[in-house]
Design a protein around this nucleic acid. Sequence first.
DNA 1: CAGAATCCTGTGAGATACTG
DNA 2: CAGTATCTCACAGGATTCTG
Lengths: 124, 124
Amino acid sequence: MDVSFAVNRERPGFAGGKYPADCSSRIVLNHITSRWGVLVLLALERGTLRWGELRREVEGISEKMLASTLKTFEADGILHREAQPTVPPRVDYTLTERGREVAMRLMPLMDWIADNADDIVGER
Amino acid sequence: MDVSFAVNRERPGFAGGKYPADCSSRIVLNHITSRWGVLVLLALERGTLRWGELRREVEGISEKMLASTLKTFEADGILHREAQPTVPPRVDYTLTERGREVAMRLMPLMDWIADNADDIVGER
DNA sequence: CAGAATCCTGTGAGATACTG
DNA sequence: CAGTATCTCACAGGATTCTG
């Protein structure tokens, strides 16, 4: 595990360590860290998925929240929605380049959580 | 092995790409991505802070939510609380090693958000 | 199949006041 | 200074029904 780069690093992001209440960063952060945001992102990171596949993949999500999460990410340019005009309809969701950038930065965190969650919760 | 659904499941995290609804990973994920979790973690990543400093640093957080967020992280072993028995009281909050591991994995994401948030929100 | 429209609820979260 | 203790409520989120 590489620790070297994080120590005493001058952080330019977030205006040098401040977190203004009404900045666009907070908005985007809230989109990504919304209840289902991370899970949807991670599911799509492995490739295109249809609506129904997403519902099954992101266990527990309601249709309403799936729709809402997908819409937010589409508006943010994080994922691309492609509807085929067939009957029955088929809709594919794919991460955009921007979405892949986010997902990529999410994965080290998710892997760490997967590795440590049992310890953390179990301790209690 | 089930070939039909085993497309390219090689991600080790999250038990091979599934996200069980009631797993400890979800719990820890929710703690970290709670409304104020990321911001508190990031504030403490630069070093120990006192209660009052945290309140000012994490702009907009209420006392109730600060207390609640800190308690959750302390119970998770993500931060350490040290109270001096002085008058007036002084309490320091510091990330544990575990907390530093989380914060470290959060920073690439936060830096990306800081760099791209204006584009994302502005587009709309 | 992929949603939209409704209705409803729990609780995350804010405001205020108080205290060791 | 560093917190509790209440009160309150908006809204995120769920359940159900309907449809092109």
